[in-house]
Amino acid sequence: MAKYKLKINGKVKEVEADPTTPMLWVLRDTLNMPGTKYGCGIAMCGACTIHLNGMAVRSCQMLVSSIGNQEVTTIEGLSENATHPVQKAWLEHDVAQCGYCQSGQIMSAAALLKNNPNPSDEDIEASMSGNICRCGTYLRIKEAIKTAAKK
């Protein structure tokens, strides 16, 4: 076990964890921040997507010991009260069915728009293809991203 000071959603959080612990489980178990979801554990589904210095990463592959000073943003920290344009667009298009994958979808979409404010359909498909939606809400996700891009 080791102690880490992590910058999460603009606050410093002190945690004690085994250095090999993925951020996913530090967030979910240690910090009781369950918005970041466990889906596959091997970076194949995207449910656990968070931002590391604004870049979308799979938290199931990010060891707590590798985070250092980097800024971690989770779905809980994306905005206060769903005011981020991506969250607003998700509500406008009523995207969710079961909703389980949507934290990861939203985090991937928010990172995409940060780097590419006006993505084409192909850009969206390419950067969102790592996020599986078992309910099949892909069309609405794409529409929501386009709506968010306009804001």
């Binding site: 779905i75 905005s79 009523d94």
Partner: peptide, 23 residues
């Protein structure tokens, strides 16, 4: 008449809705 998902806001803000989030 179309009504928005009653839990939509909770979904997009990552609230603990699911069994795996139970604590």
């Amino acid at each position: 008449k179309s009504k928005k998902n009653i839990e939509g806001q909770k979904v997009v803000t990552g609230k603990p809705l699911f069994g795996i989030d139970y604590h």
